[in-house]
């Protein structure tokens, strides 16, 4: 890549990026820092960036809240398992559908696409889940959301961009389709697989409605079911200060931060896969 550093062009580039970062970060810092504020300051100050008085009260309150912590743990299980299952279904199917020579490929693609646009709706799906005896089990969530057609189509087009010669070469070497996928295609598709995994992970992390609908035991619900209720439903005065931890709006902000944190933390680790372009190239070359 051209390594020459151009003062004007790069200067403008970095200036634009700086403005973008400020545009994103300023409103967000309100959420972040108000979670470290006292109730008093939150109520009286309107928009502010740095609190006058710092406190970790809100985080202490959340740690004391058994419902929050339980839901948080559930989310880790649901996300890990849900993502693994989704990836399994999606990768195999997307790989299969990426074969241009496959008979019936067009029909299958249409079948998939159609479900992106037409949905049966909540009640028929609930009845199905009930008929399959999946109510109250996490499988209801894993299975009803196993494949997102959108991500399947994206993955398919990633796979389809592989040079066909690669496949031919592998076949010459006596490689079966499964080996071809696992040994050659997948390792070369790390950026796209990581992208799809991230998309699934985030979708599972953010899902709340299926749990409320399919699981009668609210102790099994994920964090988003809790958070939504926490942020949206009226406060009926049932949440009070516990011990020395006071309840108030900063606790809600802290809940937003804590809920988002694991996904924010894992992103920098995944980034290296998006920035690596050498994998495909090294084979082609």
């Amino acid at each position: 890549m051209g390594k020459k550093f151009n003062l004007v062009a790069d200067g403008i580039l970095y200036l634009i990026l700086l403005l973008i970062v400020l545009f994103i970060a300023l409103p967000f810092s309100y959420i972040l820092f108000s979670s470290f504020s006292t109730n008093a300051e939150y109520y009286s100050r309107g928009f502010y960036i740095l609190p006058h008085k710092w406190t970790i009260n809100a985080y202490g309150y959340l740690a004391m809240n058994e419902n929050f912590m339980q839901a948080y743990r559930n989310t880790f299980v649901l996300t890990a398992c849900g993502t693994a299952i989704s990836l399994g279904f999606t990768l195999f199917m997307a790989y299969g559908l990426s074969k241009r020579w496959l008979r019936g490929r067009r029909l299958l693609n249409m079948l998939v696409l159609f479900t992106m646009i037409f949905h049966g709706g909540m009640i028929p799906t609930y009845l199905l889940v009930s008929e399959l005896h999946l109510l109250n089990s996490y499988w209801s969530i894993y299975l009803t959301g196993a494949i997102f057609p959108f991500l399947l189509i994206i993955m398919r087009s990633f796979f389809a961009s592989f040079p066909p010669e690669l496949e031919e070469a592998a076949r010459m070497d006596g490689c079966g389709e499964l080996q071809l996928l696992l040994r050659i295609v997948l390792p070369l598709s790390i950026p796209s697989v990581v992208t799809i995994a991230l998309m699934y992970g985030v979708a599972h992390w953010n899902s709340y409605f299926q749990a409320i609908l399919y699981l009668n035991d609210s102790a099994k619900w994920p964090i988003q079911s809790f958070l939504r209720q926490f942020l949206l439903d009226s406060d009926t005065g049932m949440l009070r200060s516990v011990g020395s931890y006071e309840y108030g709006p900063p606790v809600k902000m802290a809940a937003v931060i804590v809920t988002a944190l694991p996904l924010l933390l894992c992103y920098p680790f995944l980034q290296k896969y998006f920035n690596k372009g050498m994998l495909v190239g090294s084979i082609k070359g």
Binding site: C81, T83, L87, G88, W139, Y142, P187
Partner: peptide
């Protein structure tokens, strides 16, 4: 190889350990 191994074991773990809530 390691990535593939990790990926497939993740899938296996998913299938094995995901239904323990009934």
């Amino acid at each position: 190889k390691w990535t593939v191994l990790a990926l497939s074991s993740l899938l296996a773990a998913g299938a094995a350990g995901c239904g323990n809530s009934t």
